[in-house]
Structure formats: C-alpha cells, structure tokens
Design a protein around this nucleic acid. Structure first.
Lengths: 299, 299
DNA sequence: GTTTAATGTAAGGTAAACTTACATATTTGC
DNA sequence: GCAAATATGTAAGTTTACCTTACATTAAAC
C-alpha cells in the first residue's frame, strides 16, 4: 500500500517556497541549496500527480491547485510551530517573570518573597515593576498583577487583595494642617500624587465632591514616592489601604477620613487563558494565592 | 542558527506513537521497524530537551508535556492529510458523479446529456439516480440534484427548473373517466402514486380540499413508473410540470386542472460549500446551469 | 520461573536528501 | 540589441539522516 502522505521534507519545501514565492529564499530559510528545494517540489508534484507551481519569467507562481494546497499546509505548519514553541516554553525552567505595578511590587510582593524562596528554593522569580501595562502575550512574561475590575479579555484574573483607596497622611501633618474632617476639606491641603490627577478627582467625585477642577499645580507630583512623601508629612496621599497596612499599624500614617470608597477596583493576578503556565510559574501562582488569604502579620 | 523546527520525521513518529500509544503499532503504520520509531522519539526529546513519553510496564504513556504536544501535532497532521486529500480530489479527472432523483435523471438529464458529450467529449459523467437522499460529503459524489426549498445547510443550491406540481392524465383516460373539473373531483379517480401518499394529500390540502383521508388503497402504487402509467391511461398522476413538457406538447398527457399549485419547491443543483469542485465537475455544473436557461425544444 | 510481548540501545547499511556543476530562461543595464 | 545578472531546472555524485539488524531490558502472562 502506498503511504498516505508524501515525504514531509517535500511538503515543507513546497510550503516554504509558496510562502516566499521563491525557491532561492525558501532554500535560504531551510539552509539548503535551491537545487534541493527544486527537486523536492518536483518530487511532490510527481507524487500527487499535480502541478503545483509554474515558472513565470524568472520567478515562480502557484497554480490553482498549488494555492489551495499551500493554504492548507501553511495552517498546518503554523500549528506544528506553535505546538513546538508551547512545549518548549512550558518546560522552560528559567525564572518566573512577573510584571506588576511598582507600588504592589514594593509594598506587597517584595516583603513576602523571602517566604517563597524558603518554600521553593529552586524556583527563581523575577519581578518587573512596570509603570505601563505590559502585554501578557509577550513571550518573556509568565503572569502579571493588575489593578482594575478583573475583566480583561483573554486573561484569567484571580483576586489577590482589595483595592480600596483612601487619603492618608502622617499624624504630624494632620496636627499642624487645616482641619480635615470631610472630603471637601481636602481641597485646602497639599495633595500628593504619584501617577496622575485621575485618582484624586475620581475619588472626590465618588465621595460627593463634584465639579472639582484640579489643575496640575494642586499637586506634589512625585513619581512613585508619594507614599514616602506622606510618611514624611508633606501632605495627603491617595493610596490603596491594603498596601499601607504596616504603616497604619505602626502609626506612621493615619486615615483622617477613614476608608470609605467603593471603587470596585482590586489587585488581580492575571495569566493568559490560552497558554498553560509552566511548572515554576504554577508554583508561584499557587503561592501568591495562598499568601493573599494569609492574615497580615506584625513587622 | 538552530532550525526552528525539529526533524519532521521525528515529529511524525511521535505523533503516530502518541495516537496509538504504542511504538510497535506506530512503526507498523509508518512501515518501519519499532527501533526506528523509538530512536526518532528519543531524538525529538533530545532536541526539545523535554521528555515526551515514559515507559509504563511494557507499554508507554505520554507525559504531561507529551500530551500537550501530541494534541497540537494531531491537529496539524490532520490538516496536512486533509489538504493532501483535497488537492488529489480536486485534480482527479475521473468521471463526474452526479446523484439525482430517478425522475429528474430520466426526464431532464438523460435527454440532454448528448449535448454535453458533444461539447466536452473528454469529460465522463456518471448519473446515479437514487431514491434516497445521498450525503454529498461522500467522497465519490461531486454534486447532486435535489427537489426542495433550496435551503440545505453546508450546501450551495442553484435553481435549475421549477417544481410546480400538477395532476396529469392521458386524453383517452379523461374522455372515459368521471368529470374532472375541480380538485375535489380527484377523489373519484384512480390516483397513481410512485413515491408515497404525501404528495397527493399535500397538494389537495393546498388546493383547498382539506381533511382528505387517503389510505393506501386509493392508489396505484407503481414505483418510478407513475408517469408511464398515466400516459397509458391508467389514472391521474401527480407530476412536476417542467419534467413533462414533451408529453404535454405531444398531447400524450393533459393538465385537466391546469398548473396551479404554489408549493415553493424546485429542482436545485447542490454542491458542497466547503470543498471546491474539481475541474470536470465545474464544467458540468456550468453546462447544467446554461441548459436550465435554454428554452425547451421540440422533439 | 519460563515464556511472551512489548520497548530501548548500539552498530552498521542504505536510500533519501543534499551539493556541486551545468543548463535554461528572463529581466536589467548599457 | 547584446551582455550581465538573477532566477529556476536538471543530472550526477556524495553525504547524512534515517532505517535495519541484532541484542538488551523490562514486565506481564502462563
């Protein structure tokens, strides 16, 4: 009995040539000579009994049958390539790459990492604090931590901690500053901002202080260090309560207005829906989700 | 630079083995020895740096990675197989196979086939009159002629001729039989049927003769020869007007009640939506559609 | 415990695939 | 319009990837 499939080498030679519409370029891609490719195509045509390509001037073109065949094969080879990439990625034992916001990294992740290291000494983890949102489809990223509603298309989001926002300041600042008893009082204070004015105005709008026109001069704009500026008594900072627990417990910061916002934004661990996590990343994911349930500790 | 893909021979060996979960069976399918397959798998595992299969007792099983990889490859190889089958089928110059109803075949198709033969002497055509509906997905069928509404999922339907139904009988029969002036008169006649009672009762219902209880004894049931029985004066036959044109013109049959039905059923040429017609079938299709527009001729 | 039926490994053989070399065809440039 | 440049096509010879043969290993069956 005849085999069901022609030589795979021939099929690949044809597919590559069809993609480039050039025997020479195909040969270059396959690291062989053009003669090899040409012969493979001829063999395939003989096996099928069908002419797949024709010479047009000094280049080549697909016949109708060839175009049909190439379309099908293109798909199939892409499938093989994808599957191969996926297995290799899945078995990559390199460091787990986690992209996250700078705040979450420094206030939540880093303080706990030593516990992970103790539990899984063989798994290397690389935390990349990124100001901008990183596309998880990037090959060098295993997972991310995002602040938002938990709805991201194509991604699986698992809640880590609440994202309740509240204004905070140091006890010293509160003592010597103007009264701060209701949200609208905030307008007379130094508002520290480390990302953009949106957080403040959004929060004020929700708390019933509408039509606030905050121009950029209303702020200390200190990139990524707003929290520290608040501790040092430079003004009022808008922060995520669950990321300031240790400062609140230690009395370095206070909540003059109490936590009261209902913005439904939280911190989520996000992973790709379509690609399975490789083993070390699975371990890190499980650890994070366990850690998220753990009650906060004294420090 | 390393090639992007491992040896395709190795990939196929692995895919086949994964499908059978047996090296020996895979070897049998590939027409090689088990040792060849075993070595190919080992080579693939080394190339990937990933263990894909493990020995379990005296047979083998897939590892997690192996299962993942096999699933992707299975798809891809099926794609290659399908594409290959399709090109071969597309370029098959064997006879065009047309499945159709016996009536349409004998009354419309066969009388015109000599014209097709004259136009395309190299294209062989095989008409298969089938009482039952034939699945067009069958590999040995290029197209079909079906009687119906023109709506079939997955199929392209192109109208050939109208399917208007009407009772017919021979002039001699009409002369000596009871009067036949309105539809309800039919109940006193010999009704010839060659498929089942449905056509008659459906037609009578539409023509405003409801609640007719026709039992099988009301009929001459003469399989596939009803038309001829009518010509011979044995009773009234329910036929498709456009398939009886020559008899009507020649006076062998008459329409005692005139053509009057509005059943929206016609004869359609149907082809598969997902598979392109091979060249000879394309030619036959075009010829049929041209012929459908042609005015009827004397004979 | 021997037999049987599967997979794994190593050494050597062979055919498929590749390279080299030359032929052919068409576009480009002068 | 002719030579040069740039493609692809074909044939003969070489290489190497793949396969076979032969034996080892393992576990289930009897």
């Amino acid at each position: 009995m005849h085999p069901k499939l022609p030589s795979l080498t021939a099929i690949r030679a044809f597919e590559t040539t069809a993609r480039h519409l050039s025997v020479s370029q195909a040969a270059a891609e396959l690291n062989v000579t053009h003669a090899a490719v040409s012969q493979q195509i001829r063999a395939l045509e003989e096996w099928l009994g069908v002419k797949l390509m024709k010479r047009v001037g000094r280049s080549i073109a697909l016949t109708e049958s060839g175009a049909m065949y190439a379309a099908g094969l293109l798909n199939a080879f892409e499938g093989i390539l994808d599957a191969t990439k996926q297995v290799k990625a899945y078995n990559d034992t390199g460091p787990v790459n986690v992209t996250t916001t700078p705040t979450f990294a420094s206030r939540w992740m880093v303080p706990r990492l030593n516990r992970f290291r103790a539990e899984y000494p063989d798994v290397a983890v690389r935390i990349s604090p990124e100001t901008e949102l990183v596309d998880l489809a990037r090959e060098d990223v295993d997972m991310g931590v995002r602040y938002g509603s938990g709805e991201w298309p194509g991604l699986v989001a698992e809640r880590i901690i609440g994202g309740t926002l509240a204004p905070v300041c140091s006890p010293a600042y509160l003592a010597k500053a103007p009264p701060l008893e209701k949200p609208s009082d905030l307008l007379k204070h130094n508002l520290i901002d480390d990302s953009g004015p949106d957080e403040w105005s959004e929060w004020l709008r929700i708390m019933g202080v509408p039509d606030v026109h905050l121009d950029s001069r209303s702020f200390f704009t200190i990139k990524h260090l707003g929290h520290q500026a608040a501790v040092e008594g430079q003004g009022v900072f808008m922060g995520v309560v669950s990321l300031m627990e240790s400062d609140l417990k230690a009395g370095r910061l206070v909540l003059p207005l109490g936590p009261g916002d209902e913005v439904p934004l939280d911190y989520y661990l996000v992973t790709r829906e379509d690609v399975p996590l490789r083993t070390p990343a699975q371990q890190f994911r499980e650890w994070i989700l366990e850690e998220a349930c753990r009650p906060p500790e004294e420090d």
